[in-house]
Structure formats: structure tokens, C-alpha cells
């Protein structure tokens, strides 16, 4: 008999396959979130998933929980409203970098300041994937996108500084570092107060393809080469991944 992947019970499995492109990192992060929730022993009752807009915004709909798909950039205030109205609930946010740092940047600043007990998982793919591959707040400098054909002129946003400025939990990981990412989400869920997990993820269709990657696995391997795990620091370098509590 085929074994059952119990963590998949957090998903509405009848809705699979999801609508994301082949090789998209969102599916891996969906799985990571499920595994972390199972590890935390969360139940369907009492857990709420909130997401914003974009490719990652569609993820809330796949969870077999009460979930809210908010307006663009507004996942954080909605999550705060939920948590403050009912403190018993476990409130998680899954959203993208454009949603959280771009249009919703102001809310990130203030949600971390208020230190509400919510966990944010940011699928950071450095691109606006759903709209065709425009430059996003986390796009690396000199990186080529649809709207930066001569290479991005601006530096990416320093989320770590933004979140840790208010002494909140911040973790960075990638889809390649599967166990590390799981640990990050798990510790973020255990953390009381605002916790933020940024997971670098691959978008092959609208980003990698233009930057010369052949497939999404190559993009994941580039994370392996770029990022080194450093769990004993209070400031991560741009090529390090780890947890800051």
C-alpha cells in the first residue's frame, strides 16, 4: 500500500494540481508550510492562512483551513486584524515579495513595529511573476527583467534590516535548503511575536528564462552555490542564510 504523506492533509488535495508553472518554487514552500504546521501539531480548527495577491497569493486557497485571499499588499493588516480579534487563532501569512515589500511595504514596517503574533512566509522570487516578469523590490542589482532590459539600476530592499530593526524574528532560506527552510518556518511558528521568514524561490518562466537558466533545477543549484548557512549571527550577509531571533 502506498504510504500517506500526512502533511498533505493540510491541503485541499482535490484542488491539485495547482495552477503554477512547472518547476515553480511555490509548490515546495506550500509543502514546507504544511510540514511545519504538522510538526507544530496545528489543527484545521484554529488555524488561519492569509495571502496577498500574485502567484503566491493563490496559495491560501489550497489549504484545507479557513483562508483569506486579501487585496494586493494588504495581507498583513488583515492578519493583524484576525489575530487581535481572536488571540487563540494561529495566523499565518504566505505572500510574495512584491506584495509584502512593494505595495505592502508600509504595512510590513508597522506590523513588525506592533509585533503582533503572526508568522509571515515570504516567497521571495525577485520578480513579479504573475504579470509577466517585471522588476520587483528584491530584484538583484544589474539583473535583467522585462522592465529593466539594461539591468536593474537599484539595489534590492534590505528586508533583514527592516524587520530586525524592531527586534523581530527574521529568517532567510531558499527552496534548495529544504531542511533549513523547514527549520526556519518551524522556529518562526514557535516564536511569540512577529516572525518573518524569507524564502528565496525560483521563477523559471518569467525570471530564470531571461537570465539564462535552462530549468528550475539550475536556479535551485545557484542557491546552493550562492548561499551559505550561518545560524550563529545577528546579521546575515547578502550571501548567507540563517535565523535571527
Amino acid at each position: 500500500m502506498t504510504k500517506e504523506l500526512t502533511y498533505l492533509n493540510f491541503l485541499k488535495q482535490e484542488r491539485l494540481p495547482h495552477q503554477w508553472c512547472p518547476g515553480c518554487g511555490n509548490g515546495i514552500i506550500l509543502k514546507l508550510a504544511c510540514m511545519a504546521m504538522e510538526k507544530m501539531n496545528f489543527q484545521q480548527k484554529g488555524t488561519v492562512m492569509v495571502s496577498g495577491i500574485g502567484c503566491s497569493g493563490r496559495s491560501a486557497g489550497f489549504f484545507d483551513l479557513d483562508s483569506v485571499h486579501t487585496a494586493h499588499g494588504r495581507a498583513l493588516p488583515v492578519a493583524e486584524g484576525i489575530k487581535l480579534a481572536n488571540e487563540q487563532l494561529n495566523v499565518m501569512v504566505i505572500s510574495g515579495d512584491g506584495d509584502l515589500f512593494g505595495i505592502g511595504g508600509n504595512h510590513l514596517l508597522h506590523a513588525s513595529r506592533r509585533n503582533t503574533d503572526i508568522t509571515v512566509i515570504c516567497i521571495s522570487n525577485a520578480i513579479y511573476g504573475m504579470t509577466g516578469g517585471q522588476c520587483s523590490p528584491t530584484t538583484e542589482i544589474t539583473s535583467k527583467t522585462l522592465t529593466t532590459p539594461r539591468g536593474n539600476e537599484d539595489s534590492p530592499i534590505n528586508v533583514q534590516a527592516l524587520v530586525t530593526a524592531h527586534n523581530c524574528f527574521y529568517a532567510r532560506s531558499t527552496t534548495f535548503h529544504f531542511n533549513h527552510a523547514l527549520k526556519c518556518i518551524f522556529e518562526a511558528l514557535q516564536h511569540k511575536g512577529f516572525s518573518f521568514v524569507e524564502i528565496k524561490s525560483q521563477c523559471i518562466t518569467n525570471d530564470g528564462r531571461r537570465r539564462g537558466f535552462k530549468n528550475s533545477y539550475e536556479m535551485m543549484m545557484s542557491y546552493k552555490e550562492t548561499y551559505k548557512i550561518n545560524n550563529s549571527t545577528n546579521k546575515l550577509e547578502h550571501n548567507e542564510i540563517g535565523i535571527i531571533k
Binding site: 483569506v68 486579501t70 493588516p77 486584524g81 484576525i82 487581535l84 480579534a85 481572536n86
Partner: peptide, 15 residues
């Protein structure tokens, strides 16, 4: 914007 979204959340949560 945050105000109305916070009350959207709180209303959904039962308040």
C-alpha cells in the same frame, strides 16, 4: 488602507 483591512480581518474573525 490598513484600517479597513484590519477590520476586514477582525470581522472575519468574528468581531
Amino acid at each position: 488602507i490598513a484600517s479597513i483591512n484590519a477590520i476586514i480581518g477582525s470581522s472575519l474573525a468574528g468581531a
